[in-house]
Design a protein around this nucleic acid. Structure first.
Lengths: 220, 220
DNA sequence: AAAAAGTTTGACCGAACGGTCAACTTGTTT
DNA sequence: AAACAAGTTGACCGTTCGGTCAAACTTTTT
């Protein structure tokens, strides 16, 4: 009952509060992202997350209330990153440069935050109950905007004639596959985690493929 | 104890047995694929699968023993389809025709068996504990073979210079995204399930993008 | 330094789950 | 039609899980 005061403040703004609260909330969020990515929402247990965070289970409930609230907090943290990185796609920009930078940024994201990508992927495969508002509002608006830019490029003959929306689907798929289906890639390439050089090679392959697919050349 | 006779026969060869066994096993497998795709291994409950199959829960255990065994049976059923469709990629074939056919086949698979694709995707995102042998043996061997073919094409100047393995990663990602991340695509395109015409359009977009990306033209 | 607010923790609870079982019915064989 | 195998089913069991709580402890405020 009297605990409601704490819980409410945590739910409204998880980043607020004193040093201790902020530090522990971050600790829990980080552990939760890892465990949710590895096991999915249902497969992950609060006890497992607590162990990963090095805290007793009751502590997680103190900060986040319920498992679902913790999951939403993890997703909210990720979504901002997920929608970003399209700022280079403008009517004035050079198509090859802008698309190349976008692909590289996406590949970097898959490299540096694979767990974040996996959480999103998992959520999309299953109902995406919580993600739907973001998909239908923010993401759709973003794609509408950037598609208009690409259509201008097409009309100006600066890029091959294609459906911009399906181009985005392909770009997301090609880049995020290096995070989501990492295991498949490792198995085919024959072994452990990709080295920096291997990942750089992968990035350049995707960039080159995309630019050619858009009727562009890396140089010029 | 005496039930072990039934279970053993079911585990060794789920497709064997009398009419009733075959019919019910197929019913359960179909329901299980749907539920596993929608909820993942951990999220799916035997009771839910039983309800979807229209059978009492104990019945599933009679045919498949454990939840894990049922899951393995579902995966085994899918893997054969998943590895197929590369037969058109041969040294003598026309690259544009062969790759176009492969992409179209993959797109068709995403359209007709989205649940199967989602089960695989889910398994890959999480540890793929059960899939790993197939990845490291069958899939790797298949990719090695087909990569050699594509390298021949490259040396003969019939296709752009690229790393065949990463080409396959991109092809799988681009096509399976229409099954796995269907929700994202629907949200961006603004609404319900894709019509046949819309899906055909998507297929042609992907085919054109891939062929251009490989330095090929749809005609000639 | 006392009071208040914030934080920690082990023990506990009800619900849901995978799995078992024995009694029963249906199908098959001879 | 008798005997046996195959299939069905509701009730039940132990475990695990998300969540609660009260009591203790620590930090901040005054």
């Amino acid at each position: 009952m009297n605990d409601a005061v704490h819980k409410t403040s945590a739910e409204v703004d998880p980043a607020s509060g004193g040093r201790i609260r902020q530090r522990n909330a971050a600790l829990i969020l980080s552990a939760a992202e890892k465990v949710f990515a590895a096991s999915g929402f249902n497969g992950a247990s609060m006890a497992e997350i607590a162990a990963a965070a090095g805290l007793p289970k009751a502590n997680l409930h103190y900060y986040f209330g319920t498992k679902e609230a913790l999951y939403r907090a993890v997703l909210t943290n990720i979504i901002e990153l997920w929608l970003g990185e399209t700022h280079g796609i403008t009517p004035e920009a050079d198509p090859a440069e802008a698309l190349g930078a976008y692909v590289r940024a996406k590949m970097r994201w898959s490299r540096e935050r694979p767990d974040a990508s996996r959480v999103i992927a998992n959520e999309l495969i299953h109902g995406a109950a919580f993600l739907t508002p973001y998909l239908e509002d923010d993401l759709r608006r973003l794609v509408d905007e950037k598609s208009a830019v690409i259509e201008q490029w097409i009309e100006a003959g600066r890029i091959a004639k294609l459906d911009p929306r399906h181009l985005f689907f392909s770009l997301w798929a090609m880049t995020q596959t290096y995070a989501d289906f990492d295991l498949q890639i490792r198995a085919v390439l024959g072994g452990g985690p990709l080295s920096d050089a291997e990942y750089e090679h992968a990035t350049e392959q995707v960039v080159a493929f995309v630019l050619r697919g858009c009727g562009l050349t890396p140089r010029g």
